[in-house]
Each structure stands twice: as C-alpha cells, then as structure tokens.
Write a protein that binds this DNA or RNA. Structure first.
Length: 337
DNA sequence: AGCCTTTGACCAGCG
DNA sequence: TCGCTGGTCAAAGGC
C-alpha cells in the first residue's frame, strides 16, 4: 500500500551512461586535437594546473597522470554508449528524483572510484572546466560537483586502504568472483551485499525485471521507521551495475565503522558514487551539503578547486589509459600519443 | 533466538 | 477487461 505509493516515480532505465571507447577518429581528436589545431587534453590539463596552481605539489600533468595510471583506477574496457545528444549532466541526472549510476560490468576500479561519464564531443578542456559537466554551483540533484567528486575520491581512498575482508558467510559468493588482482578484493564486498554505505539493509525481494538484463534486488533500511529502500542490480559476475536509492534516512548511520571503511566517512553514504536519491532532491541536497563535508571550511577555495580538477583528471586518466590499449593502432600510424 | 536471504505468490499500475 | 510488469509480502530455511 504505502510502499507502493512511495514508488511513484519510476526512474528511466533505458539510458545507461557508460564510458566506452569512441571511434578512432574521435579518439584521435581527444588526444591530438581536432585537425591538430587545438591542443590535446594533456596539454590542456597540464596548462590548467600550471596556470591555476603553480604552487602546488603537482607540478605537471605528467606527474598526475603517472600517478593516476599507476593507481588501480586504471581499468580496462571503459565504455561509453549513451546517445551523443545527451550531455553528462543530463545523464547524471537522468533518474529524475532518483539518481542512478550505471557501471560497466567487470570494471572493478570504476566501482571503486565511480565512473566519470564523458559525453561525446566534450573536449578535455570542457571536461576540466567544472562547468563543462555540471552547472557551476551544483551537480546532479543539486549536489556540488566538488562534493560529489570528493566523495568519489574519499571512497576510492578508503577502499584502497581497506584490508581484505574477512571471510564470512555473508560473503559466501565471493569465491565466485575470479578477479586475479587481490587488491580489488574489497569491491567483492558488493557481492550479494548492498553497498557498504554505513547503513544496514535487509533484502526483501529479488526479481528479474524486463528492463534489465540482470536480477534486481530490493533492500530496505533495517532501521525501524526508516523508509529508505534501494534497488540493486548486479551482473552475473557480481558487479553492481546499478543502484537506485529511494527515500531519505531519518537516522544516523548505525554502522559507523562500516561506513568509514567503505567510504572514509560515515556521513558519506548520501552521496556515494553509486548513490543516491530521495523523494526530494532538495532534501537530499540538504543532507549532502550538511552532512558531507570533506573539505575543511578553512580550506582555500583555490585548493579545493585544484583538488577537484585533480580528481577529475584522475578520472579522466582512466579514460586516457584505455586509449593506451590502442597503442598498436597508434604504432601502426606512427603517431605520438 | 534473532536476523538474514531466498523465492514463489500476490498486488497495483499501466497500456 | 486483460495481460504484462515492477514492487512487495511472507513463509521457509540458513547462519
């Protein structure tokens, strides 16, 4: 009854913003610039950092990129398969009042870090421009992109630091996952378990829905009187492909430790990259902005800006790394990257 | 014993 | 009205 009333808004599921390798021509444009007249992203990014934060520790984009590529964020098979007409903001906000994040199955690192959606035609400069993806002050659902990315980064750090999970019956399906790289193991926590967002969830249903190729699991917050539910879709490999939150927690995360382990902040569950939703965007925004505060208030705005762009680049470097897969092709062409 | 997942059945919305 | 679909219920069983 009332539960069905809560499900008044059905998020669109037909649009699945994912990153995919663009056709050769566009790939080429990303890195060498169209017609060779425009600087490539590396140039642009490098110049951005040098121009805006000359006093920072990261002196060059090469350093950033080197670090990024050496990190687990470098993942294979990044896909982008959304319609060219959509921009990133539209995709990120395509769920109406329910924010969705879709991840390519098997992209462990993207699960850790979140997927940066790079729309076709978005230039690296546009990407690095904070207004290129999100509105100047706000991102999806009105959450500032800084905070969003801060959360993404926080989660990535937390997961990288998180020790391998202890075996337990709760993770009995972990053995089904065949990831060879044990450093990615924390992501296996998602197998048969809702995302570790600091809240406790009870699964109350599972169903194979037509709109999805994967089974959809239904969870509700175990806290009494808490109306929050979430739907989780997982691929056969156990990778979460979609999480849709619904409602708003009316309590603090009971599992502080779990939240901390998973995302570095017990308060971050409202804006995990997998996240979000809410019957009211404004409510969600309010929560996100009041509860999520990775930046210290006295953090210089320029530094925030820098860190934001750094993280953006770190994400973008994942995309760049995918391009390295095409090295053979490049070698055939005899062109520099 | 308590909490959890599983899973078939049921219900409501919609075309 | 009917069938399809998504969401939820609730009994059963596991840990």
């Amino acid at each position: 009854m009332s539960e069905r009333e809560q499900s008044s808004s059905k998020p669109p599921t037909s649009i699945r913003p994912m990153i995919t390798l663009p056709p050769r021509s566009s790939m080429e444009n990303y890195f060498i610039g169209e017609s060779g007249a425009s600087p490539g992203p590396i140039t642009l990014v490098s110049s951005f950092f040098t121009e805006n934060e000359p006093e920072t520790d990261f002196r060059s984009f090469s350093q950033l990129l080197a670090g990024a590529m050496a990190s687990p964020t470098a993942v294979p098979n990044v896909r982008r398969d959304f319609p060219p007409s959509h921009d990133a903001a539209a995709h990120m906000n395509s769920g109406g009042d329910v924010f969705q994040l879709n991840r390519p199955a098997g992209l462990v690192a993207s699960e850790q870090l979140g997927v940066l959606t790079i729309p076709p035609g978005l230039t690296p400069a546009g990407l690095l421009d904070s207004t290129g993806i999100f509105p100047p002050a706000q991102g999806p659902n009105g959450i500032s992109h800084q905070k969003m990315l801060a959360q993404v980064s926080t989660q990535a750090r937390a997961r990288q630091q998180m020790p391998p999970p202890k075996a337990s019956h709760k993770m009995k399906e972990s053995s089904d996952i065949s990831h060879s790289d044990q450093t990615y193991q924390p992501s296996n926590l998602t197998v048969d378990k809702p995302a570790e967002d600091g809240y406790n969830w009870r699964k109350y249903g599972q169903k194979q829905v037509k709109s999805s190729e994967y089974p959809r699991s239904y969870y509700r917050c175990t806290n009494s009187n808490c109306p929050v539910k979430k739907k989780v879709e997982r691929s056969l490999e156990g990778q979460i492909t979609e999480i849709i939150y619904k409602g708003q927690h009316n309590h603090q995360p009971p599992n502080k430790r779990g939240a901390s382990n998973a995302q570095g902040s017990s308060e971050s569950s409202q804006v995990t990259p997998e996240r979000v939703s809410g019957s009211s965007d404004s409510d969600e925004v309010g929560n996100a902005e009041t509860r999520v505060n990775e930046w210290d208030d006295d953090e210089p705005q320029s530094k925030r800006r820098y860190m934001y762009n750094l993280r953006t680049v770190m994400n973008y470097s994942v995309y760049i790394d995918k391009c390295l897969v095409l090295k053979c092709w490049q070698e055939h062409r005899g062109s520099d990257f």
